[in-house]
C-alpha cells in the first residue's frame, strides 16, 4: 500500500484529502447554518460521497468542464469552487456565485469549468455532451465530465446524450454516483440491472464500476476515461458505488433505509480510511493532517462570516441577467 501511494505526486494526495475534508465539513456546516436560519432553501448534501466527487474532479485538467447535480457541493469544491461564494449563494446573498438567484441547485462558475449544478435529474448530461462537441469541433484536448446519480440513467436525457456522444465519439466522461437510492426509492425498484455501467455498451463505449469510497480508485478510473476522451476514443461511463449518509434532502425522514446498511457503509467511510493510509505511508504526519483539518475549519469560518456579512440582493436585481439584451425592457 505504501508503494502504491508513493507512486502519486504528494501534492495530489494532500489535495485529495484536503478537499474531501472540506466537502464533508462544508456540508455539515451548511446543514448547521440552515438550521440556524442563514440558509433559506434546499440542501441535498453529499456527506458520504466525498471520494467520488473529489477523486473525479482532481483527475481533470484545469480546462476541463463539469456538469453537476442537485447533490453538487462536492463537485463544486472538487473543481475548485470557493466556499465563500458557495456559502454566500446558499445564504441567498448578492456576493454568491449566482448573486442569490440560483441557490444550491444552480451554482455555476464558468471560469472554473463548472457549467452548473442542476435541479433536474439528468438535466446536465446533454449539456456536457454539447460542451464536448464544442471542444471536439475546435480540436481542443478538453473533456466534459457529467456527474449524475443512479436515478438519472432512467431518464431519456441520459440515453439521448449517451447515444449522441457514443456516435460522435465526443470527449465525455459519464460519471454516475450510484448511492443506491433515487430520492426515496432503492435502485432495485428503479432499474433491472445492478451495475448501471452496463448501459454504456449499448451506446458503443466502455462502462466501468469502481469503489466510490476509494478516492484513488475513482481518480484512476477517471484518469483512464479522460485519457480515452483526449485521444479521440470517445466517452466512458464510470459508475462509482457510494452511499449518502443523510437524506435525499435535509428533512427527509429516510424511512427507506435497510437495517444495518448505514453502519456497513460508514465502516468504510472514505475520509478516515484515506487519512489512515496517508499516515501509514508517511505521506503526512498526524500533526500535518491536523493542520489541514484546522485549515479547513478556518476556511469555513471565513466562508460563513463572508456570507453573513454579504448584502442581500435588492429586489430590482431580479431584472438583471435574464437576457443579454432586454430590448429596452420589452422582454419583460
Amino acid at each position: 500500500m505504501e508503494k502504491e501511494l508513493k507512486a502519486y505526486p504528494r501534492e495530489l494526495l494532500v489535495e485529495l484529502f484536503r478537499r474531501m475534508v472540506l466537502v464533508r465539513e462544508f456540508e455539515l456546516r451548511a446543514i448547521e447554518e440552515r438550521r440556524a436560519g442563514l440558509i433559506p432553501g434546499f440542501i441535498h448534501s453529499c456527506v458520504g460521497q466525498e471520494a467520488s466527487a473529489v477523486g473525479a474532479c482532481l483527475a481533470l485538467e484545469a480546462g476541463d468542464v463539469i456538469t453537476s447535480t442537485h447533490r453538487g457541493h462536492g463537485h463544486l469544491i472538487g473543481k475548485g469552487g470557493d466556499p465563500r461564494y458557495m456559502m454566500a449563494e446558499l445564504a441567498a446573498r448578492s456576493t454568491g456565485y449566482c448573486r442569490g438567484r440560483g441557490g444550491s441547485l444552480h451554482i455555476a462558475d464558468f471560469d472554473l469549468g463548472i457549467l452548473g449544478a442542476n435541479g433536474i435529474v439528468a438535466g446536465g448530461i446533454p449539456i456536457a455532451a454539447g460542451a464536448a462537441l464544442a471542444f471536439s469541433m475546435r480540436g481542443e484536448p478538453r473533456v466534459a465530465l457529467s456527474f449524475f446519480g443512479d436515478g438519472a440513467v432512467n431518464e431519456g436525457a441520459f440515453h439521448e446524450a449517451a447515444n449522441l456522444a457514443g456516435l460522435w465519439k465526443l470527449p465525455v466522461v459519464f460519471f454516475c454516483e450510484n448511492n443506491l437510492y433515487g430520492e426515496g426509492t432503492p435502485q432495485s425498484k428503479q432499474a433491472p440491472v445492478t451495475d448501471l455501467a452496463v448501459r454504456a455498451e449499448g451506446y458503443g463505449f466502455p462502462g466501468t464500476v469502481v469503489d466510490g469510497q476509494d478516492v484513488l480508485a475513482v481518480y484512476g478510473a477517471v484518469r483512464e476515461a479522460t485519457g480515452r476522451a483526449r485521444t479521440g476514443q470517445g466517452p466512458t461511463f464510470v459508475e462509482a458505488k457510494t452511499y449518502r449518509y443523510r437524506g435525499h434532502y435535509e428533512g427527509d425522514p429516510q424511512v427507506y433505509r435497510l437495517p444495518g446498511e448505514m453502519e456497513a457503509w460508514q465502516a468504510r467511510d472514505p475520509i478516515p480510511a484515506f487519512r489512515q493510509r496517508l499516515l501509514e505511508a508517511g505521506i503526512l504526519t498526524e500533526a500535518a493532517l491536523k493542520e489541514i483539518e484546522a485549515g479547513v475549519q478556518a476556511e469555513l469560518e471565513e466562508a460563513v462570516a463572508f456570507a453573513k456579512a454579504a448584502p442581500v440582493p435588492e429586489p430590482q436585481e431580479a431584472l438583471q441577467g435574464v437576457y443579454a439584451d432586454t430590448h429596452g425592457g420589452l422582454v419583460f
Partner: peptide
C-alpha cells in the same frame, strides 16, 4: 433532448 441540450452546452462553450 440531445439536440437542444447539446446546443446549449456548445453555446455555453
Amino acid at each position: 433532448i440531445a439536440i437542444i441540450g447539446a446546443g446549449l452546452g456548445a453555446a455555453m462553450s
